[in-house]
């Protein structure tokens, strides 16, 4: 890539902004998301096969349905679940990508 561009925004900043935006969306904005059934659920209800859905195996989990068990405040419960999920996905996907990537320098080999 050409380095002739005047000022390139450092990667670190881009990373921080994406992370902050994701955390805000999951932690704060998600409270205002539509509570209506999504396309598939709606169609299933209308077409008459929604009943065939069975109870989810982890329906009693501590974060089931994007709520944090034991946190009564709805806003906090959902926001916390969103933040935890975002961090977990970041670590898992980022970690997986770090393991899969080709290494430019001779760093530690795990895979």
């Amino acid at each position: 890539m050409s380095e002739t561009e005047k000022k390139r925004v450092p990667f670190k900043w881009v990373a921080v902004v994406i992370a902050v935006v994701a955390l805000l969306l999951a932690g704060v904005v998600s409270y205002y998301a539509s509570a209506h059934p999504d396309g598939l659920e709606y169609v299933a209800g209308r077409t008459g096969f929604l009943d065939s859905a069975s109870e989810h195996g982890t329906a009693d989990g501590p974060l089931a349905d994007y709520g944090t068990k034991g946190v009564d405040n709805e806003r906090l419960s959902g926001g916390l679940a969103g933040v935890i999920g975002t961090v977990v996905v970041l670590l898992l996907a980022g970690g997986l990508a770090m393991v899969v990537r080709r290494r430019s320098s001779s760093s530690t080999d795990e895979a």
């Binding site: 990667f11 990373a15 994406i18 992370a19 935006v21 994701a22 955390l23 969306l25 999951a26 904005v29 998600s30 998301a33 539509s34 509570a35 209506h36 999504d38 994007y66 969103g82 999920g85 975002t86 961090v87 996905v89 970041l90 670590l91 898992l92 996907a93 980022g94 970690g95 997986l96 990508a97 770090m98 899969v100 990537r101 080709r102 290494r103 430019s104 320098s105």
Partner: peptide, 23 residues
């Protein structure tokens, strides 16, 4: 994936997770 795009992949996944919450 290389040293730069690997962390970006994690961020993109996190962003997708967050945005999927926004019906």
């Amino acid at each position: 994936l290389d040293d730069k795009t690997a962390p970006l992949a994690g961020l993109v996944a996190a962003f997708v997770f967050a945005t999927q919450m926004l019906n």
